[in-house]
Nucleic acid binder design. Structure first.
Lengths: 217, 217, 217, 217
DNA sequence: TATGAATGAGGTTTCATTCAT
DNA sequence: GATGAATGAAACCTCATTCAT
């Protein structure tokens, strides 16, 4: 399954009846927003890149902001959170005995996801701070649901004595920092340099696992 | 020393001969760029907020981009890196025996710095990805110098057997992730909620220290 | 007979083969043109209000202007003048002895007409000044025919010594001003306030009759 | 005193500090709005006619609507009503014994006013029905004040036995219809034809005076 | 016949920048 | 140095109209 079609599958989940041109518009918008930022992108640029007339954009999206939301909102509401949660369920059902195995699965999974959807994720990251609606959507659909799931998982590992006894939110913050830092370092800072993926991942996992391990009695 | 004057001190280091109006322009620009993003901010808006005429901005800064650079560049070149390095020197001279003490000092120091200069840091974070000059400046003046310093420090602690034997860049990535994650969580995600600063900091320090500690032989 | 069907009857006089959609389009156009003015009304708005596709309008009316003309032209050519003339004939055939009786009949008749077709009349009033074709049509089909008829009637009353001996056009101007002023005051200025229709009409009739009565010898 | 400068005097009453270009914009806007209607006039057309850049319009008037209001509102608030009232005062102070003399003065005065400001009056007439703010302003600043004044005058003539004893509003309606009908016939319908101004005016005055005269006892 | 996606010209408005004062 | 009117290119958006289905 190619990245392209996968991306469209996701954005199309509820809009199967999408024109070819509309798809082109979405693709062009994602690419340009990601490269230059939302505010610095002009609709005429998107139209040109999509190979459509500028008016066509506004037939499908009432405003430029609408176009942004139609990219970011489903990414957060239907893509990020559900995927996350589904993965976590899978992870739980598989009943990884070790926190380490669980962490490894999550990192690999999210890493792949990030690689596939980097442009759209970059847009989210860049625009959420400037658009209160997006911020609210993020908190509601992503953050809160994430916390709920994570709390349950962490507590189960804490009961097993594999994680130190601190609030699950703190566990989440520390783990997420490491994972996101790993992804960002990988994709943004050193995109082409010497970087042993396998090794760095192992180092990250070891770091988190040891960092969160309980003190010996 | 008030935050205001401190901010201006920094941006003024090389431009002692700055008019009152110019200072007002800088302040207004920082505030607005931070709130709405560079591309979404109009110069007329800055002028209004600064209480100057629209033309006055262009008397001091040839273009709007110039204004951005005059905020971000010195922040990175003279503010971020030098401060960092100076602190590190202090830290080293004081010869903290424990890596833990060193880490604690760094976190407290950077935390204060971030609190004081949040708007300007937000601008950097948001705009660096879209402006190649800034990206280069960042890598050259901040990232590379940081790595140089850090490498030296990490290796000294590795020699003391307090840090696991992995590449200093990995140590830096893992530590920085935790610190930056701590700061972002503190300032962006939970700006007003229940958050025990002291405790969370201790948890973060413990996490990094344990996470980087060498395996027992 | 409902107002709706009556309206369509009139506009349909020569176009018996009008589809249901076409009727809907005409109704929607009349309503919207009247509310917002021709230039400020978009064809898509009409389409939406009529419940048809945007393209359907242009299947029946080559241009937007065509749509306007197809409303205004028949209203003037077949609706306004003929009705007027027919009434006048009736009036004359009945041979009202008194100018006063004649005037009363005209006012009542036109008042009812105006109430029934206010939107379409408003469109005519608003758009005639901006469209030379309409202006010509108005002068040719309404104004000139009206004058011809009126001249004959006025002269007959002048012969009877019931109207002062001034040019019929002046009589027409003065009478029309009073009648139109009456209708506008009634429909536009005081649409809901205290207004005794019966009494105001009597006052208007008395005003015109006395105003046009010959000087006593 | 030329019509041009007079017009600007009026619109400038409160804005003495108006750019030359701004005046040009106002003139061009009045001319074009009057000719083609507000909605059918483009700002680029106004700019071209005024000999300024399109942006210049929006430096002085935030929106196109603003430009309309800046023409119509003062015309109604400061021009129409006050002039009217001042004239009426003059008229009263001069203590015209006869209602006929009073009427003659009013007709002449308003006729001149209409001739001078026809374009701007046409704009008012055309646009008030489509803009609720304007409608309210008209009722508040023109209509209500007019009624107040007129009531007083009419009643004084009714006491003198020169006007029939009907409500002053009815007197006003009938008189205004005749005057406005006179002006419109003169300026719109027969702008160039054979029309003896002097005679038509006398006929109108006679018509109103006789039409409103009390019944002989 | 009816549709509605697509168009592109043109509409209103914004904005960085210039320049006479 | 400071102003703010002026600019004109370009931004976002609308709309009458066309055309493949």
């Amino acid at each position: 399954m190619s990245e392209q079609s996968d991306f469209l599958d996701i954005l199309l989940e509820n809009h199967e009846n999408m024109t070819e041109k509309q798809k082109k518009i979405l693709e062009a918008a994602v690419e340009t927003f990601s490269e230059k930022g939302y505010a610095a992108t002009s609709t005429s640029e998107i139209a040109k890149k999509a190979g459509v007339a500028e008016g066509t954009i506004f037939r499908h999206y009432k405003t430029k902001k609408d176009l942004l939301l139609s990219i970011v909102a489903p990414t957060m509401a239907k893509l990020l959170a559900p995927f996350f949660i589904r993965d976590f369920n899978k992870v739980l059902l598989n009943d990884y005995g070790d926190f380490e195995d669980f962490l490894r699965a999550v990192i690999i999974n999210r890493m792949e996801f990030a690689k596939k959807h980097m442009p759209i994720l970059k847009i989210c990251l860049q625009e959420i701070p400037f658009h209160p609606e997006l911020k609210n959507q993020f908190i509601e659909h992503v953050f809160n649901k994430l916390i709920g799931r994570f709390k349950y998982i962490v507590e189960s590992y804490q009961k097993k004595g594999q994680i130190i006894d601190i609030p699950p939110t703190s566990v989440m913050r520390l783990s997420a920092s490491a994972i996101i830092g790993f992804i960002l370092a990988r994709t943004l800072l050193v995109p082409e340099s010497e970087w042993d993926d396998e090794q760095e991942m192992e180092r990250t996992i070891r770091f988190v696992v040891k960092g969160l391990s309980p003190d010996p009695k």
